[in-house]
Amino acid sequence: MSGADILFYMLAAMILGSGILSVTTRHIFRAAIFLLFSLIGVAGMYFWMQYEFIAAVQIVVYVGGITVLIIFSIFLTQQAGEKLPEQKMGRQLFAALAAFCGFAFIMLQILRHSFIGTTKTTAEPSVVNIGNQMLGVEQGGYALPFEVVSILLLAALIGCIVIAVRNKTQTT
């Protein structure tokens, strides 16, 4: 077993272990923190694969963005130090079934997909390449989806402003 393998198993153990802890703990804040560790582990996996850009984006979006959002919503709605009540059996079963279905679906896809061994040199995932690809208009470029996403974001921004302005006129 080489050093890279050891690192891989350590990262995998971190992802899976904190994932399991995240769903089994009864403290809601601890669940969020374990989710965070799981996501950091995924980022570590990207670093392990030397996809630094994806890893950094994973940290920016999931760790710095989504987890902080989750933690904030916990802060605003929950009491510190209280345990959550035990869930009903039916709900637990349903959740387990849903998780299993998702897992089975993905595993099926992976097993049925025949991966092609490649001898080509791998494309260098540098930021310049990613940028060119993202804004490329020729074959394989992502200019159109990129613009669509930016329009979606713009709509969301305008929606935020509209909501904020309406609240202000109501209160005064």
Binding site: I33, I40, V57, I59, V60, V63, G64, V68, I71
Partner: peptide
């Protein structure tokens, strides 16, 4: 900038 956003955690 990515890692420094973890410090808030």
């Amino acid at each position: 900038s990515a890692i420094s956003s973890v410090s808030v955690i």
